[in-house]
Design a protein around this nucleic acid. Sequence first.
RNA 1: GGGGGAGUACCAGAGUGGCCAAAUGGGACAGACUGUAAAUCUGUUGGCGCACGCCUUCGGUGGUUCGAAUCCAUCCUCCCCCA
Length: 428
Amino acid sequence: MNFVEELRWRGMIHDLTPGTEEYLSKGMGTAYVGIDPTADSLHIGHLVSVMILKHFQQCGHKPIALVGGATGMIGDPSGKSLERNLLDETTLRHNQEAIKKQLSRLLDFESDAKNAACLVNNYDWMKELSFLGFIRDIGKLITVNYMMAKDSVKKRFEGDGEGMSFTEFTYQLVQGYDFVHLFETMECKMQLGGSDQWGNITTGTELIRRKLGAEAYGLTCPLIKKADGTKFGKTESGNIWLDARYTSPYKFYQFWLNTSDEDAKSYIRIFTMLGREEIDALIAEQDAAPHLRPLQKRLAEEVTCMVHSRGEWEKAVEASQILFGGSTAEALRGLDEETLLAVFEGVPTFKVAASDIDGANFVDFMVEKAPVFPSKGELRKLIQGGGVSLNKEKVEDAARAISSADLIAGKYLLVQKGKKNYYLIVAE
RNA sequence: GGGGGAGUACCAGAGUGGCCAAAUGGGACAGACUGUAAAUCUGUUGGCGCACGCCUUCGGUGGUUCGAAUCCAUCCUCCCCCA
């Protein structure tokens, strides 16, 4: 299978250096992607790079994931208008470990195959490097003029921003040096990344050309966009993380399920390994029966299974059916405690004393005892607009009281704000 | 150093003595419609015992006035022009 061809039909190529296809056609190639360890979990923005590595590996090449322990300490100025905050070493170490764990579930690091994936941390070689050594061996090879011509740098010199520190200016050289190092030690001749990395990648290939007199290659993928122009991978509640502690598998599943038709058509090519025929068939199915959303369902299934597990996917589907499948108050009451908790895992939960329940006024209770809503006025207005439900039944009267008879399984209250926002109240 | 302008709710932006809890647009939230979509339409968007009542808000402070976002003084911040 041809890697470049594969990415091309999936719409995952933004730019590539000349000679890339030829290099990869000569047998097993090696390429790396850099990942900034700014948090102790990857988010779905990282997923694109990981998918590229996955394809790379599937096409018989050797992928390397580079955790940027050193570069993370500097901060990539690309796409940033302000100087970045630096991370301390302890945090970085912790983040690196967590990211390693996540990556190892997505790529094959274990097998004996020649092209098993590999994980490196640039801190391991950067920490040995002396400042003097660096400016002698690397700094000499590149002119400031060349570095200034990069978009990521130019932007910081013009217009808004607040200037750029020497540290960030040097970033591209440091990242370029990674490439040189991997080229020399692992025969890694290619770097992959998002389109914002193009400048950094070409600095690397340039360094390799000047220092080693050798050819190296780069490929970038377009930044993922949503059809409505808003930012991909963010919701009101923030980033979508791969770590279940930050984004529950249910939320994760829901995120993909809720993509628009248009986006789903491109996402399914980018975020799943499904083949061309299968995807074309799904798209045809979607066009024939859009309300059934076969595309979104399949997309959500594939990605959730890949990132979490089939078991988590099944739970997410089950939870979705209970939450959105037109279930009634009776169905809700029919649930046993265990299922209930599983379904509402990750839903904001409030604990109250059981003695506070009986006879309490609904509005007062929801603001004072279990602060689901920030103010009584807002809650009243929502109730008037028909936007609040208790145990799947619309709250009609703002003055209604609650009692222990409202408790599900003797200790839970399920409050809904609108259709999608659930809150669980536990009486203890 | 000289001259001019501006700071209003989440954002943008009206208002320049009482009719201002403050136009309008965007955003956000909710309702209807739907496919848990998009588009559209509707409502809400300072707090409180909420249908015309009270309290806190228009950069800070202090004043004038029966009454101030609006007038005066002063301080702070930002922008523009000239040197």
